[in-house]
């Protein structure tokens, strides 16, 4: 497993120690998971979900939603009615 590449995809910074431990642990987990290859699944449909559910539509009606202050109350950074984040545009 290319752990640096995967960690970047997951937006997760890992220490060198974590990389070493996780690589070792994950390769034994993946080795275990490889036992799925014992099974022939060529004609088997995948199950994403156990219930036979379909898209559900509702009427496009205006309803009350979370007030701005409540939606922003947990923001780690806030300016007025906006979330504040590190500068994106150079």
């Amino acid at each position: 497993m290319k752990i640096d590449h995967i960690a970047m995809l997951a937006r997760l910074e890992l220490t060198n120690e974590e990389k070493e431990i996780f690589s070792k642990q994950l390769s034994s987990i993946i080795e275990y998971i490889d036992k799925l290859n014992e099974l022939d699944t060529t004609s088997i449909d995948p199950t994403a979900h156990v219930l036979p559910i379909k898209n559900i539509f509702r009427d496009d009606k205006l309803k009350p939603s979370l007030p701005k202050d409540k939606a922003l109350q947990n923001a780690p950074g806030r300016t007025d009615d906006f979330y504040r984040v590190p500068k994106i545009i150079e």
């Binding site: 290859n37 699944t41 199950t47």
Partner: peptide, 14 residues
């Protein structure tokens, strides 16, 4: 190899 395969085996378990 992993996600789709696992979903197929999920079908077998179901």
């Amino acid at each position: 190899a992993y996600y789709k395969k696992a979903q197929q085996v999920r079908t077998l378990i179901k």
